[in-house]
Design a binder for these strands. Structure first.
Lengths: 344, 344
DNA sequence: GATACGGACTTTACCGGTTAAGAAAACGTT
DNA sequence: AACGTTTTCTTAACCGGTAAAGTCCGTATC
């Protein structure tokens, strides 16, 4: 297997076998007019016999459409494996790509700058026909890059962050407000939020919305902590929030993803606090995980798979030259389960 | 953004600006000898000024190395999002690919046949320089295909399944035996195993090993159930196992992944059984999840991230023309936590 | 001063397709 | 029968690089 001499079959071989020119084979395989049914058949038969399929690299170079879309994720590799969100998002994206016989070019990067360079070189090198941009931050360099080089992209994030790019987003602000209102309606007056990475745009949006909601409801206590989305960070944050006593301790905590909520659940148990009697917990994203814990986790439920699919569909629209604009998708909907109740 | 005319900068432009031929630019960018330092500098300066980087598609077509590796996963998109295993595996693979400025071409497929065709066309089309094959089953068609076309691949699976392909695998049989012995040593005589998809090769290996271990230890009861790896299936299986009473009920359950173990934990709680007093649970893979539950989950711990990294390293070896053979990696190691104890 | 040689580039022929323009045969018209 | 149209294919020029072979030139050798 070391350097097995692979006898690559090319269009020339097929042409020779069918007794026609390269051009004819190309016409046949692209279903273009200008060939008789008879020759078309002969060509396809020859191709089948030789087991030939057009070389996509050459096809791409010659200027036709590229059937690969890019996705670069800017997060340490180790952390990524722990987050259900991305895998589910990717699976949603894939579900649509597959219908179009399109593949996903995936790459983990360390910084936004690295991603910006990568995306640009993917595009310039015709490696991709378009790209999905995620994890926007304020003044994101990818906005200008995409516009400068004219790369078809879909930005996953609020329009305020994604500039003039076509965007697909969920209304995080409204969802946060709803979460807080729900807990307040249950009677909670001291509410905390364990947020995600502070650098991310959607984190700031949620943070601002939380502050505003807390103010509007005149809560007696409102805390916010930033984390890196990991379960460990969620556990630490929960531990320090619950370590306080009396009026300094929140009676309800909202998490920015579900892995942290699971961690919070376990910290509460370990500290001898009952959920939801002593403290209410509310997760985000709502992967299957939330239904597997005991008590089950109430969550701001969000169809991440469907979200990914919608992003992919929108990208195809953009690549085809349409679908530009801002595409809000369904706001996460509150799904009460066993981890939220009125405070004692 | 619809169809922005992109002024693509090519090697010709750079050559013109530097006042040299295309060939010279190519030499400079591939760090090949035959150019004076002065021209080299001039070329790089010109390239920088024009913001040029070599077009990878063209470079690939011209016959140099391809910096993309393939991975097709044969599983319904929806299910994939739920499994921590793959995301962690992918993140491990990525961590090594990134070092080599290499990207991953990912695609979900429905059947092994579809994957076989896809992999072959990726290879023939020079879309990839090599590929990672996962989820082997008996008489897998990918083995013959890879050998026939001479595609560099690394097969993730036991050599008995992967034919003559270079393989990276963990010793599932030994691990299962160890898991059963451990539970038996704690005093358990009735042990169940909630396994994965029956069609997968490593599932059969584990199933056989469990049977053998159960026989060798002359257990009073040994059950095995096949699932689709989902938490729901794990919950169902657990519920039916624990519904029995007395001598028909297992006192310990081994799961084939951790999501099912988490589900099992919650089912036990819901049925009023205490873990580990009434029933011991043992997870597999051991993602972060196992440390986030309460009680924490004992597991056959397996560095999935490192496993992915090793697979990627091996693939690079194969692509370079070496590293052929069978590469066993560390056997999952038993990590006792809070979910296992002697039966009452 | 003719010969050989090595360094610095340029030329040119691919890689495997696509596609515009051209040519030969088949067809319909008057 | 002469002439314009189609239909059916072929030719040849790209796409943007790589790499082997060729050219030119300054210099060391005898």
């Amino acid at each position: 297997m070391t350097a097995t001499p692979t006898p690559r079959v090319t269009i020339k071989d097929v042409a020779a076998r069918a007794g026609v020119s390269k051009g004819a084979v190309s016409l046949a395989f692209n279903h273009k007019p200008g060939l008789s049914e008879a020759t078309r058949d002969r060509i396809f038969r020859a191709a089948r016999e030789l087991g030939w399929a057009p070389n996509l690299t050459a096809r791409t170079l010659a200027g036709s459409r590229v059937d690969v879309v890019g996705l670069a994720i800017c997060r340490p590799a180790r952390l990524l494996g722990l987050e259900p969100f991305y895998m589910e998002f990717v699976s949603g994206v894939e579900s649509v790509l597959t219908e179009h016989s399109c593949s996903l070019l995936l790459r983990l990067v360390r910084t936004v700058e690295e991603e910006t360079g990568l995306q640009e070189s993917w595009w310039r090198g015709r490696q991709i026909g378009g790209s999905i941009l995620v994890d926007f931050r304020a003044d994101d360099p990818r906005v200008a890059m995409a516009q400068r080089v004219g790369m078809p992209v879909v930005a996953v994030g609020h329009p305020s962050l994604t500039g003039g790019l076509t965007s697909v987003w969920t209304d995080d602000a409204t969802a946060v407000t709803e979460a807080v209102r729900y807990l307040a309606a249950l009677g909670h007056r001291r509410i905390a939020r364990v947020g995600g990475a502070a650098a991310l745009g959607h984190t700031s949006i949620r943070t601002a919305a939380f502050d505003e909601a807390a103010g509007a409801l005149a809560l007696a206590g409102a805390w916010q902590v930033a984390t890196d989305f990991s379960g460990d960070a969620g556990a630490r944050a929960t531990r320090s929030l619950l370590a306080a006593s009396g009026a300094d301790r929140p009676t309800a905590i909202v998490y920015d993803n579900d892995i942290m909520a699971v961690a919070g659940l376990s910290v509460a148990a370990e500290m001898g606090l009952r959920v939801p009697e002593d403290v209410s917990l509310l997760a985000w994203d709502d992967s299957q995980l939330c239904r597997l814990t005991h008590p089950t986790l109430s969550a701001m439920s969000h169809d991440v798979h469907g979200f990914g699919a919608e992003v992919a569909r929108t990208l195809f629209g953009v690549i085809m030259g349409g679908g530009v604009g801002s595409h809000p998708v369904a706001t996460p909907v509150l799904t009460p389960r066993g981890s939220t109740a009125p405070p004692r």
